[in-house]
Simulated assay, not measured.
Amino acid sequence: MSTFEIIMAIINVAALIIVPIAAVFIGQKLQDRNQKRKDKMEIFRVLMMNRGIGWTADTVRALNIIDVVFSDNDSVRARWREYYNQLCIQTPNVMQRKQIQEAQDKLLEAIAQSLGYKKQVTWETIQNPYIPQGMLNAMQQQQNIQNGQEQLASAVEIFTKAFRSANPQPDSTTVQRKEDIHANT
């Protein structure tokens, strides 16, 4: 066997060992990258879907994983921190609600840009969600029902306290004495 043949045999053996390992490694990296993009798209999809109707459980879950999923994007994480700080206001006034909405829109814009949708998902697109009037009416009616239930519960509680204070319950020794008197007669 010549030196050239020996070198070729070594290269072939090395290729047989290295190529499958490299293929697995590259395939895993591509799958990881694809999964990260899917996770980012899912967050964006959920936030865009619910931007006009307020909070849902999915929205809260999506917001809570932004720091993990977008760990490689400082712009998105900075916008999330700004939005989070706005959300921490306990009872926002009209101006603060507007700032909260703007912070949410800026977060969505940063996510859209990070996903490569800078030209497709514009500021105008983000700020104009579709919300049918019937849905708004149903949401308002649901809120009115919930408010009514809370008011009814408060009224029942007040009535119950007033009734108990006007009609005190006898303690157990008074009840026992009455039972003893009835038993002896």
Rank of each mutant, 00 (worst) to 15 (best):
N137E: 15
S2D: 15
N34H: 14
R37F: 01
K106Y: 11
N137Q: 10
G54M: 05
I7M: 10
D74Y: 06
E124T: 12
V13N: 04
T185I: 14
P170D: 11
N50P: 00
L47M: 04
I181G: 00
Q31W: 10
Q35Y: 03
S172T: 03
A138W: 04
P168I: 05
I111D: 07
M135K: 13
G52K: 04
L63H: 02
C88T: 11
A103F: 03
A112Y: 10
I131K: 09
R61S: 13
Q120W: 08
Q104D: 09
Q86S: 12
N137H: 04
S114A: 02
A155P: 00
Q133F: 06
R77Q: 13
R164K: 15
K106M: 12
A23S: 06
A62D: 04
S114I: 03
V24N: 00
D67S: 13
Q113F: 03
Q151W: 07
T122Q: 09
V76M: 06
M8K: 15
K38I: 12
Q35K: 15
V76I: 09
L30E: 03
I181Y: 10
Q142T: 08
A166V: 01
Q90T: 11
N93R: 08
D32V: 05
V175M: 09
E5F: 06
M1S: 12
Y83R: 07
D72N: 14
I11W: 08
R61F: 12
T173C: 00
S154K: 15
I131G: 00
I26N: 02
Q31Y: 11
N167S: 07
L107T: 11
L107H: 12
N184W: 10
P132D: 12
L152N: 09
I26A: 12
Q31I: 13
E82M: 09
A9I: 06
Q141W: 03
V24L: 13
K40E: 13
D39V: 01
T160N: 14
I145A: 07
T91C: 06
V46R: 02
N85P: 01
P170K: 13
Q99P: 01
L63W: 02
F4E: 13
V69F: 04
L152M: 13
S75R: 14
Q151S: 09
M135A: 09
D32R: 15
I65M: 12
Q176W: 05
P20R: 03
W55D: 07
E42K: 14
T91Q: 11
C88R: 13
Q169N: 07
S2H: 05
V24A: 10
Q101T: 13
Q28C: 03
L152D: 08
D39E: 15
I158A: 15
S71A: 10
I111V: 12
D105K: 04
N34V: 00
A15V: 08
V69P: 09
E109F: 05
V76L: 11
A57I: 07
G134N: 14
A103N: 04
A78V: 05
E102P: 01
E150K: 15
G148C: 01
G116R: 07
A14K: 01
Q176G: 00
K29C: 00
E179A: 14
Y130F: 14
N144P: 00
V24M: 08
T3D: 14
A22P: 01
I17W: 07
M135N: 00
A110Y: 09
R45I: 01
I53F: 04
R33A: 07
V60A: 08
P132Y: 02
